[in-house]
Amino acid sequence: MKLLKSYCSLAVILALLLILGCKKETPIPSPETGNLVLKINYTFNNQKLIPDSLIFRTPTGYLVSVSRLEYYLSGFKIGATNTNNWNYLNGLKPEGNTLLLTDLAPGDYQSIQFSIGLIPELNQHGKISGTFENNQMIWPTEMGGGYHFLKFEGRYKKEERNPGGYAIHLGTDSFLIQHQALPVQFSIHKNQTDTLHLTMQVEEWLSLPWPWDFEKDGNYTMGISEAMKKVMQNGNKVFKVD
């Protein structure tokens, strides 16, 4: 028994030594960069966005609910520096509301800019990881390929008519949304992760320059260039800094 005990503790020590020894040979370089977490809130007319609730009033007088709000952000520009980060986001799921920008040069910055959707280098099947979520966002080859930039869906209702359904989808390179630069003072610190809070004002998708009338502008945009162009133009100012 005693022999066994000492044998085992020796094994433990050996294992520990081995682990520590290995570590020494491949030291992790101390990063010269910092990270930034973006936390995104979702509001509709300044109210917190509640999924599946037919309670939000659009500028054209419809009541709408939101049952899906999925999109990508990519093409980040921090100050004058481009970064390679991109992320899938889901406005209706708590785990889908933050994204991490890595390897940023330390310093003080005055603005952040990004695209809603995937920049052309990423917008091809297989260019981003084949997770279940990313696969669900595929824009079929038969319709031009790449990924959905945005899936924004729900129900709408005007007066006493039966509620209809809308599916505002955006995809293909020419409809990538260059979101306007957001002016904000923030700093990136070496070896640290700083946080910035943004809000998506969901009603903006249906506001200016194209106040959306489901009965005239349609309730379905996928593959309809004219409709997708309007969505693209409405979408370039949906975010603000908190």
């Binding site: 037919l54 049952s67 899906r68 869906e153 359904g165 809308y166 599916a167 349609g218 309730n219 379905y220």
Partner: peptide, 15 residues
Amino acid sequence: KNSETLDPIMFKRHE
């Protein structure tokens, strides 16, 4: 058949 929870995708472009 339409109902309050019918998926938005089912509406397509058609009333």
